[in-house]
Design a protein around this nucleic acid. Structure first.
Lengths: 210, 210
DNA sequence: CTCCTGTCTGACCGATTGGTCAAATAACTC
DNA sequence: GAGTTATTTGACCAATCGGTCAGACAGGAG
């Protein structure tokens, strides 16, 4: 019945898998792991439920795949720093890249938030492993900067959490932000201004340039 | 079969209702509205499922009651401010009271977060109503302070969101904080230090005292 | 004791859950 | 064309969902 000259099944497969991942990220982010249903994901992807299960195997593997995708995005952002680097530039780059991640992947950010909110049952290992080491490494550099008088002696771990929370907020609490600011959505200009604001306040708050 | 001299049914009722609200707040916070089941709430409250429904009527009314309780706690924190007040003292009191709310009601904070994360289906009216007005009122005062040169001319709405996010973080992302800091829980000293840190960085970041 | 009111709960309901499976269809290889 | 493999999908399953209900309880009043 097909009149197509070049059906290319591979393209269809890639399109369906992409649609499923996108739909699933949205539904999982909104309702959490338990609250999400494969039926809802299938409807969002415009596919029958059975077809979704044919591609992903099970709800759990789909969820884990989405978490891993988000964690790889996160890891791609985590470049090393050195004691010899300029504190202000490093901190500003940190804030901007974290904000960009939130901006480019709001659904993934919310998915991550829902996972943590539920006690991080699937991410315990990651949190206590590579992420902790990454934080400790940065913390040591921050402390050395403080010892050299290059910045105020603030607790580096709380500082990292401050940056994470302030940026994460605009994805996780988007409904609140939009409701209070009376907007349909935030545009590029908004995000640029928010990022500049955060850089200004946090850097100055740590005793860095002006 | 009861050998009690004064059974006092009223006391039993109060005890059960309290147990149900506590259990429900925990389960709703962890799994969201859809992901939470009455069965799970009943088990957490050590009561039969039918008994829970006898007390609360339905899942939705229970959820709404919990949200309203949390919003009333929030409102109790929102006292008015005046242009003549001292910016540093107001901002510090704001940060400390918000942090105290997070500290005293982490489950409620997470419940609120889960609701917003899911698109705030039950809180739209509140966000677009009284909370927006409260933010706008504070924002006007912040702007006047900036005009008078009492603080840096930062966007007041983003500043409020910064404080909200930074404090909310320690309830919503508790699993992440504990995993990274390798702790079982944060104690009073930790919360005091975090609060001091936030006051120091944010106030200095806005050009207020030192 | 009888009656009454409030509390409690197992049994049950239709709907939905995640997941299986066989059969139908489509697409590619030869 | 035939043969093989990949894809699609409705029917179906046991388990769980929110919620109802009848009846078993309790304690107090008369």
């Amino acid at each position: 019945m097909t009149t197509m000259s070049a059906p290319d099944a591979t393209r269809t497969r890639r399109r369906n898998e992409k649609a499923i991942l996108e739909a699933a990220e949205q539904v999982f982010a909104r309702h959490g792991y338990r609250g999400a249903s494969i039926q809802a994901i299938a409807e969002a992807a415009a596919l029958p439920k059975s077809n979704v299960l044919y591609y992903v195997g099970s709800k759990k593997t789909l969820y884990v795949k989405l978490l891993e995708r988000m964690m790889s995005r996160w890891n791609a952002m985590l470049d090393d720093i050195n004691v010899e680097d300029d504190p202000a530039r490093v901190l500003e780059a940190f804030i901007r890249s974290k904000m960009q991640l939130t901006r480019e992947h709001p659904q993934g950010s919310r998915l991550f938030a829902a996972e943590i909110l539920g006690g991080a049952p699937f991410l315990q290992e990651y949190l206590r492993g590579e992420l902790r080491e990454w934080v400790e490494q940065r913390a040591r550099v921050f402390e050395q900067w403080a010892e050299r008088g290059l910045m105020d002696p603030v607790d580096p771990v709380w500082l990292i959490f401050l940056i994470w929370s302030a940026t994460q907020h605009y994805a996780d609490f988007e409904a609140q932000v939009l409701g209070i600011t009376d907007r349909q959505q935030l545009n590029d200009t908004d995000y640029q201004r928010i990022t500049d604001f955060l850089c200004q306040v946090i850097l100055k708050g740590c005793g860095l340039r002006v």
